[in-house]
Simulated assay, not measured.
Amino acid sequence: MSLKFSVLASGSTGNAIYVETPKRRFLIDAGLSGKKIEQLFKEARLSPESLDGILVSHEHSDHIKGVGILARRYNIPVYANEKTWDAMTPHIGAVPSAQKFIFGQESFQTFDDLDIESFVVSHDAADPMFFSFVHDGKKLTVLTDTGYVSDRMLAAAEESDALVFESNHDVGMLRMGHYPWNVKRRILGDEGHVSNEDAGMALANLVRKKKADIYLAHLSKDNNMKDLARMTVQQTLELEGVGLGEHFRLFDTDPAAPTKLREL
């Protein structure tokens, strides 16, 4: 009777997160090739044939690259809001109308034993959103691809037992790196990505209220490192008065390897 999940891949090169309950199985985004996602499922000892749906957060390539091929190959329903459907349709190929479903922003849907809530994030996409999942009193929230963390996002993530949370970049590495200034400005802006420090500040508001396992996600391959992200987030949390072990545990994610299937 448990809520389980695995971060199959997370990073600027592609994102896919698997969630299951005894009765339902969903994939949040499919931002890698169909072949690579199938390989990740195999490594995690999971099966794409069992999926009840793909939930799409927004239309950027690192979140939709494999949506069309998986939907067609395994006859999987796809859920996205109307603006995201309009934006991603030219890039994923034809999806049969019987497999196309609307999941609007700031909405709530129940699929048998799984409740899913969507909430708005601040990103340079048509209508970006992410999701919280609740089953049998356990809650998982996925929150990446946002330039800042609003009170509304924090409210959606409250009381989570596990958080897949953006820790995209180290500000110093980004500023000193090779990206052109317009790209740096986009990442640092309100519709870009959350830094390690800002992730720690936002997470402090959540884990001081309820202990949670934190999976640091969507790390930049050029402007971050796993050890640096983990150290910075931990230090920021501790400066905010919340301690490792007492209030939170930290876990890595990877752009090319799944996390162990976790049971909440």
Rank of each mutant, 00 (worst) to 15 (best):
F5Y: 14
L8Y: 09
A9D: 04
A9N: 11
G14K: 00
A16Q: 01
A16N: 10
Y18E: 07
Y18F: 15
T21I: 03
F26D: 08
I28Q: 08
D29Y: 07
A30Y: 12
S33W: 10
K36R: 14
I37R: 14
Q39T: 09
L40C: 08
L55D: 02
H58R: 07
E59T: 13
S61T: 13
P77G: 09
V78N: 09
A87T: 05
T89Y: 02
H91G: 00
H91F: 15
A94M: 08
S97V: 12
A98Q: 13
Q99L: 15
F101Q: 09
I102M: 12
T110I: 11
D112H: 05
D112V: 05
F119E: 08
F119L: 02
V121C: 10
H123W: 12
D127K: 11
S132M: 00
F133L: 01
F133Y: 02
G137W: 08
G137L: 04
K139Q: 01
V142L: 04
D145C: 15
T146N: 07
T146E: 02
R152H: 06
D161N: 09
V164H: 03
V164M: 05
N168G: 04
D170W: 07
G172T: 12
G177M: 05
H178E: 12
H178M: 07
K184H: 13
G192P: 09
G192N: 04
H193A: 15
H193S: 15
V194K: 13
S195K: 07
N205Y: 14
V207L: 04
V207K: 06
K210A: 08
K211Y: 01
D213F: 02
I214D: 04
Y215Q: 07
D222G: 09
M231E: 13
V233H: 01
Q235G: 11
L239P: 02
E240D: 11
E246Q: 03
F248R: 00
R249K: 07
T253E: 00
D254S: 07
A257M: 02
P258W: 05
